[in-house]
Write a protein that binds this DNA or RNA. Sequence first.
DNA 1: AAGTGGTCTAGACCACACA
DNA 2: GTGTGGTCTAGACCACTTG
Lengths: 248, 248
Amino acid sequence: MVEHTASEKPATRATTDGSVYEGLRRRLQAVVANLAAHEALPTERELAEQYGVSRTTVRRALRSLEDKRLVYRVQGAGTFVSNTTVSKSLSLTSFSEDMRERGWRPGSRIVTADEVPAGAEIGADLQIAADEPVVRLIRVRLANDSPMCLESVYLPAAGVPGLLEGGLEGSLYEKLARYGERPARAEQVVTATSVDGADAALLDIAPGSPALRIRRIGLNRRDHPIERTVSIYRADRYDVSFAVLRDE
Amino acid sequence: MVEHTASEKPATRATTDGSVYEGLRRRLQAVVANLAAHEALPTERELAEQYGVSRTTVRRALRSLEDKRLVYRVQGAGTFVSNTTVSKSLSLTSFSEDMRERGWRPGSRIVTADEVPAGAEIGADLQIAADEPVVRLIRVRLANDSPMCLESVYLPAAGVPGLLEGGLEGSLYEKLARYGERPARAEQVVTATSVDGADAALLDIAPGSPALRIRRIGLNRRDHPIERTVSIYRADRYDVSFAVLRDE
DNA sequence: AAGTGGTCTAGACCACACA
DNA sequence: GTGTGGTCTAGACCACTTG
């Protein structure tokens, strides 16, 4: 028998968000924001009583904050507020989301939008045959109207019929969602490169300038590739930040 | 009352590893290795019965496999083997570990080993005053005896007395462990750059060649910076691979 | 010694997928 | 509808840190 022990704070069930621990995470995140670095949070057992939830649920919320690098835990000692505001999360975002997070206004200029055979390399990445058609969309992506990167997206044409006929403005991810496809995760490979004459002109940099090349393969929830993107970022304007953990 | 329901497989308690779920994870990982992509695992309830553990523990082990991108789960459908062998984990490794994972033999050639004032930038990264001394260790790191990257490590000198007097061969992480300091996580920033004359000579590449610049700040379990490293990797020999998730 | 986070159990209900 | 993973409870014991 499961009985929700009614408490002074009804634990935000059946409100906007789905789960109790998610609501609790948000409340704790607000609490953490008002604490100094290395300050201790209440103990798990205290939090459980305060918010009228089980300790398991508290731990779940704290784990979520820990994953976001907002708190750290030391066995036997307690849970503490993390050090820095650094720790950008490494989540799968669109170019537009990414730019807005960095405080810039995203924009776009289409270079190419057509349908071509996949070819060997792209076919392999998307797990389709080399002669299958793919939609190719090449854009100069802008930040505050200035070139930030040159982005080439390839999508299996079979999955997105009529995409090229609709307007190509706005979020590509939103359009994919309308086809019922949404990337749940992505594999990324980051390399350094230098940009040659043609691409350099589009990016408005001198030939031979260094750049970050990011190849991304977007996978749906069932682990099938649905998108393959290569982005060439100006080295003077962009970096990739993330946190890594010992072990895992 | 907690009673361990004895089962045919005693769930590897009190063997080499610490926890039941960790042992179960390893067993399941071996099972997964013998299944084809997208093949379904047994249900959580079946696994719980088979291995004589609670469903909570099974879920914990599966979550761990999911974090490693070895399986994916679909609510209402099941748990399935992931697609590719790609998905290098993004864990905090030393240069030597990293090279061995890539199948190369790591090596090292010391360029500079001394003690200097931190200065503004490095002091800020290590959260010490600019006039505090730091140990500076600059090395050309080799893969199969050929230059792979130029690595500059800075450590607060107060934390590692006598480090420079001992031999500087072998693993720096091991030496740090002897001082009781071990990085638990790290913040990394990856940028592209081009390498100038002096560094280019050390890396044995033409001046102006592109390179990956990785700045890493290693933090201990209590979120204090203990190490600051800048590595300049040859673009023709190195990349950074990782997976990103939607939301988080 | 006391208190903290870490692991684990047994059982309930909820949300979603699929036939 | 049936079965799956997702959430949640209440309570126990273990491993570790700290006064």
